[in-house]
Measured scan of single mutants.
Amino acid sequence: MSGNGNAAATAEENSPKMRVIRVGTRKSQLARIQTDSVVATLKASYPGLQFEIIAMSTTGDKILDTALSKIGEKSLFTKELEHALEKNEVDLVVHSLKDLPTVLPPGFTIGAICKRENPHDAVVFHPKFVGKTLETLPEKSVVGTSSLRRAAQLQRKFPHLEFRSIRGNLNTRLRKLDEQQEFSAIILATAGLQRMGWHNRVGQILHPEECMYAVGQGALGVEVRAKDQDILDLVGVLHDPETLLRCIAERAFLRHLEGGCSVPVAVHTAMKDGQLYLTGGVWSLDGSDSIQETMQATIHVPAQHEDGPEDDPQLVGITARNIPRGPQLAAQNLGISLANLLLSKGAKNILDVARQLNDAH
């Protein structure tokens, strides 16, 4: 009898209710805020589980004197976190989706994509230029951005401005803007500013005609071990179906173009009346040469937790077992079709030249 009692006690200790789920994140304040929001949602869904947040620095956090596009290494903000995932030191990792490459290392998958916040870019102005827009900034004003995508589009749109690289986390960039006289304004992701509670610093939100956004911008991705079915089931509740389908289309477009950090590629997606609209573009580094096109596809946005595919093969690095396969494939095909259209119009040449120029500098 006593033996059975011990077995029952052991089973209770090993039951999922007692389990601590370890969540990996970057150390920056924004990353911690984003991770806290994901953990809060998981806690609400699984009140019996405990969650421990483990923060670590990544290569991208450490190399702050070089433009991201020049470092010449993929997975700048993800490699150390993936290493911890691989060694079973954490069970899942919360990322900004735009930091996750469209091809993940073997053994990993994006197990959830959370509801997207505003994906557009924002302009934050130096205190002396508050009330201005990019259009009304004085001639030769210097605007800071760490992104080739932003610089290429904005140089084309605002030729009277000069664009220079600015690195560091959000706090560091804002301090550089406010305390030094080098920059009249800087460009940042609206979602990051909003998550930090800095709505009052948003001086201008850039519309798609001015600057399309990065693939996955404004959404959070939760990376897990691809074979860890328990954790895949656990994080599945975080999937937002519309965000998922938009981001599958965007990531398929980028992957098929073979774009990345070192080339200016941008997108804009919208879901309306059962249609998914995808606009994508590529630019030369100075913005003088560009190709942009829009395509659409009829896609039914499923309700969360309709029964999805059981075999769960990944699409552009994403596993969404609780979302039907048909809409996911339709979104992926839309991204591939748009990429093929741009490639047929000469996108590869623009991107190759951009890559060579970026590598040469």
Rank of each mutant, 00 (worst) to 15 (best):
D65H: 09
W198R: 08
R116P: 04
G111Q: 02
H95S: 05
A226Y: 13
L206M: 14
L76E: 05
R251Q: 00
T172Q: 02
E89H: 09
V124T: 06
I323S: 10
G60D: 04
E80R: 09
H199R: 12
L104H: 10
H160L: 10
G60R: 05
E73Q: 07
R201T: 07
A191C: 04
A303W: 02
P138I: 09
H256S: 11
A191W: 01
D99M: 04
S337E: 06
H120D: 10
L64H: 15
M271N: 07
I248L: 10
G131I: 05
G107C: 12
R325F: 14
E52R: 12
L193T: 06
G274T: 00
I186S: 06
Q153P: 11
D311L: 04
L85I: 07
M212W: 02
R116Y: 04
L97N: 04
A249Q: 02
S141I: 05
S69Q: 12
Q275E: 05
P324G: 06
M212N: 00
D311P: 09
V90M: 09
I63M: 13
Q229K: 08
D91L: 02
E306L: 13
T136R: 11
F163H: 11
G221C: 12
M196K: 05
I350G: 00
G236F: 02
K128E: 15
L206C: 10
L285C: 07
K74E: 02
I291G: 07
L92A: 10
I113H: 00
G259L: 11
V215Y: 02
G280W: 02
P313W: 03
L161Q: 13
K140N: 11
V130Q: 11
L97K: 04
D289T: 14
F163P: 11
R164I: 09
H126C: 13
K87A: 12
G259R: 06
G107H: 08
R321T: 09
K227D: 15
Q275A: 00
D99E: 06
E89P: 01
P241C: 14
V39D: 01
S288L: 13
E310M: 15
F51I: 11
A226E: 15
A320L: 09
E293I: 09
I291N: 09
V90K: 01
A189F: 03
G221S: 08
P302A: 12
T66D: 05
A44L: 10
E117R: 07
L174C: 12
I110F: 04
I299K: 05
I318G: 07
L285N: 15
I336R: 15
V123W: 01
K128N: 13
A320Y: 00
D307G: 14
T78F: 00
T58P: 02
I71F: 10
Q296H: 14
V267C: 14
G281W: 10
F253I: 13
L244P: 04
E179W: 10
T133V: 09
L254K: 03
R355P: 14
G48W: 10
R116D: 04
S96H: 05
A252H: 01
A339C: 02
Y46H: 13
H305I: 14
A191D: 02
E162W: 03
V224T: 15
L342V: 15
H120L: 13
E242N: 02
K140W: 14
S290L: 08
P309L: 13
N200V: 07
R116L: 04
D121A: 02
Q296I: 07
S165N: 11
S37A: 14
K157C: 11
F163W: 13
